[in-house]
Simulated assay, not measured.
Amino acid sequence: MQHDATPEEGRALIADALPPRIAESTGPEGLEMLRSHLLRDADRPIPTRLDLDDFKGALGTFLLVLLATFPLVIPFLLIDRTALVIRLSNGASLTMLFLAGWMLARYSGGNPWAGGGTLALERWRYLGNTADRAGILVLSPDNARLIDDFLISINSVRGVSCSIIEG
């Protein structure tokens, strides 16, 4: 619009950028007024600065992430048995997703049981797939000792990662 565009081309560019109903309601006079204001202010830089709303948004995002993930971390802070802690954390994530699906379905007018169940089932499916792909073995302490040498040899093979979770 700044470089060798005719007034008609400038108004057409502005009309294309606006929603159709607004472009129609402003008419040629309104489009010309917008074009002249844009040309007048084109050389003035737009100041970029953070204001209070930006910091409020950042704090809100931080709190949302903290509140969404902290219930999954609590079992790790309280219990020493790794296998049990992982199961409790996975159970908490299933519960949270079921409740989120329930509330979303209620808000959107859907079936709350179907919404909650769908999110929980997807999480359940994901939990099974990641445990299989990660090579996680849940063993009793007796079996862990018997298979320890085998895991050491597997870990020496490039690209394979195994972990022992005693439970």
Score class of each variant (00 low, 15 high):
residue 151 L to V: 03
residue 136 I to Y: 06
residue 146 L to W: 03
residue 32 E to I: 05
residue 23 A to M: 09
residue 163 S to K: 10
residue 107 Y to T: 05
residue 124 W to Q: 13
residue 75 P to C: 04
residue 60 G to W: 01
residue 14 I to Y: 13
residue 144 A to L: 12
residue 127 L to S: 15
residue 14 I to N: 12
residue 99 L to S: 09
residue 52 L to E: 08
residue 68 A to M: 03
residue 35 R to I: 02
residue 153 S to A: 15
residue 4 D to C: 13
residue 160 V to C: 13
residue 81 R to Q: 09
residue 90 N to E: 13
residue 161 S to K: 08
residue 23 A to R: 11
residue 64 L to A: 08
residue 58 A to D: 03
residue 77 L to P: 00
residue 163 S to P: 00
residue 2 Q to E: 07
residue 82 T to V: 12
residue 108 S to W: 02
residue 99 L to N: 04
residue 160 V to L: 14
residue 20 P to M: 12
residue 145 R to F: 04
residue 10 G to R: 09
residue 92 A to C: 10
residue 18 L to D: 06
residue 140 S to F: 10
residue 155 N to H: 01
residue 70 F to C: 01
residue 162 C to E: 08
residue 42 A to V: 04
residue 129 N to E: 15
residue 60 G to L: 02
residue 2 Q to C: 01
residue 93 S to V: 11
residue 66 L to Y: 00
residue 109 G to F: 10
residue 84 L to Y: 15
residue 45 P to R: 11
residue 34 L to C: 07
residue 86 I to K: 05
residue 75 P to I: 06
residue 67 L to P: 01
residue 7 P to L: 11
residue 155 N to T: 01
residue 87 R to S: 09
residue 154 I to G: 02
residue 40 R to T: 03
residue 122 E to C: 12
residue 71 P to T: 08
residue 25 S to P: 14
residue 87 R to I: 10
residue 108 S to G: 05
residue 128 G to I: 04
residue 113 W to L: 10
residue 154 I to A: 12
residue 127 L to M: 14
residue 14 I to L: 15
residue 37 H to Q: 06
residue 114 A to L: 12
residue 128 G to V: 04
residue 18 L to C: 06
residue 79 I to L: 05
residue 40 R to Q: 05
residue 58 A to P: 00
residue 166 E to W: 01
residue 107 Y to D: 02
residue 124 W to M: 12
residue 5 A to L: 13
residue 90 N to V: 10
residue 108 S to V: 02
residue 116 G to K: 04
residue 94 L to M: 13
residue 30 G to Y: 04
residue 112 P to K: 06
residue 138 V to R: 11
residue 86 I to D: 04
residue 138 V to W: 15
residue 43 D to R: 05
residue 10 G to T: 15
residue 111 N to G: 08
residue 50 L to Y: 06
residue 122 E to K: 06
residue 83 A to Q: 09
residue 140 S to I: 11
residue 143 N to V: 15
residue 11 R to P: 08
residue 82 T to H: 04
residue 107 Y to C: 02
residue 15 A to C: 12
residue 131 A to V: 12
residue 79 I to P: 00
residue 130 T to V: 11
residue 61 T to G: 03
residue 61 T to Y: 03
residue 99 L to M: 12
residue 109 G to V: 09
residue 68 A to F: 02
residue 56 K to D: 04
residue 109 G to I: 11
residue 55 F to A: 07
residue 136 I to E: 01
residue 61 T to S: 02
residue 143 N to W: 12
residue 22 I to K: 14
residue 90 N to L: 13
residue 100 A to N: 12
residue 35 R to T: 07
residue 122 E to L: 15
residue 96 M to K: 09
residue 32 E to T: 15
residue 6 T to K: 06
residue 11 R to A: 11
residue 29 E to D: 14
residue 40 R to I: 00
residue 95 T to Y: 10
residue 147 I to H: 02
residue 72 L to W: 02
residue 47 P to W: 01
residue 9 E to Y: 09
residue 22 I to Q: 15
residue 46 I to L: 05
residue 159 G to T: 06
residue 102 W to K: 13
residue 106 R to P: 02
